[in-house]
Amino acid sequence: MADPIHQFEIQKLVTLGHIGGHEIAFTNSALFMAITVVGIAALLVGGSSARALVPGRMQSVAELSYEFVANTIQSTAGKEGMKFFPLVFSLFMFVLIANVIGLIPYTFTVTSHIIITASLALLVFATVLIYGFWKNGLGFFRLFVPSGIPIYILPLIVFIELLSFLSRPISHSVRLFANMLAGHITLKVFASFITLLGGFGIAGWFGAILPLSLVVALTALELLVAFLQAYVFAILTCIYLNDAIHPGH
C-alpha cells in the first residue's frame, strides 16, 4: 500500500506464446490499451450512429473532439496539414482517453510508461522524416540550414539545429511520461498520508482532512493535466509535421 511505484508494475495476465525464447504475454498494460481503443471506438461510433442534425450528448462530444483537433491542425500546420488528421486525431484521442482512464482508481496508466510514449513520439518522428524526404527530397535539409546566417558561423548553427531536431522525440515522449508518472506518484503519496494519520486516533482524523482535501484538489489538477498533455502531444505533432510540409521557413 505504502509503495507508490507499485501501481506502475507490469503484470502478465495471459501468456500468448514464445518468440525466439522471449515470452509474449498479454499484460495489464496491453489490457488497458485495448480498453482505451474500445472506449474511443465506442465513443465515436456510438456518437455518430444517430446522425442527428441536432446532436445528442454523445454525438456532440464526438463532434467537438473532431472540430477541436481539426482546428488545432489548421492553426499550426495549415490546410495541407489536414492530410495528417487521422494520425493526429488518433494520437490525441489515445493519449487523452488513456490519461483519463488512468485517473480512475485501481486502473493502470498506460501513458506513465516511457516505452509507450517513446513509441508514439518515434512514430511521429519517423513520419516527419519519411514524409519530409518524400515530399521535399534533399530540400528537407534546408530545415537545418537557416537562411541569412553568415557563413563563418553556419557550421555551428547547423550542428545546433541538428541537435535541436534530434532532441524532439525525447522531449516529446519524456514530457507526457514524466507528467503522468509524477502526478500519479504524488496522488498516491498524499493518499497514503490519510491512512497514516488516521492511525493516530481522533487527532489524526482531523489532521487527515488536510491531505484528503489536497488529494481532491490534486485529482482535479490531474484531470486538467491529462487533457493538457494530450493537447500538447497533439499540437507538437502538428508543429513537427509542419516542418515536414514546409521546411526552411
Binding site: L163, S164, L166, S167, R168, I170, S171, V174, R175, A178, N179, V225, L228, Q229, Y231, V232, I235, L236
Partner: peptide, 20 residues
C-alpha cells in the same frame, strides 16, 4: 489552454537538448 500548454512544453525542452 494554449498558454498553459506552452508552459508544459518548456519543462523538458532544455533537458532534452542537453541529453541528446
Amino acid at each position: 489552454p494554449s498558454a498553459l500548454a506552452r508552459g508544459f512544453r518548456l519543462s523538458t525542452e532544455l533537458v532534452a537538448g542537453v541529453l541528446v
